[in-house]
């Protein structure tokens, strides 16, 4: 249980970073941390003490780890890769236009 709470704590660390930091790169890293905490949570869900890799064979009667969360983690890593790459590209283009990574100086929109 304490491990799950630590995952949630890591998630909150990510949220805190994404909300309070002013640097575009730090925001991207904070979003990465949020993603890692969720991935960690999913992997912990699948873990069973002393279990084997889930390859089914006839007459195979040992406890196995749950394969579905592992597949979910792989997929979510791929998605995070896409989002991070896109946000890094946007950050670089913003730097070209504004010459800064500081979000308090990037305020041409009023909303």
């Amino acid at each position: 249980m304490i491990l799950y709470l630590m995952c949630f704590f890591l998630f909150l660390v990510g949220v805190y970073g994404a909300i309070t930091k002013r640097d575009l790169i730090k925001i991207i890293l904070a979003i990465g941390i949020m993603g890692y905490s969720v991935n960690l949570f999913l992997v912990l869900l699948a873990y069973r003490t002393g279990a084997l890799a889930p390859i089914l064979e006839k007459g195979f009667n040992v406890p196995m780890v749950d394969p579905i969360p592992q597949a979910l983690v792989l997929t979510s890593i791929v998605i995070e890769l896409g989002v991070t790459a896109l946000m890094a590209a946007l950050a670089i283009r913003i730097y070209q236009k504004y010459d800064t990574f500081d979000i308090t100086k990037i305020r041409r929109l009023q909303g």
Partner: peptide
């Protein structure tokens, strides 16, 4: 344009969170 990039970054941050 600079406004479009800014809007997109804002959207991407909130959407990702």
């Amino acid at each position: 344009e600079s406004e479009e990039l800014e809007a997109s970054f804002k959207y991407a941050t909130m959407g990702a969170i």
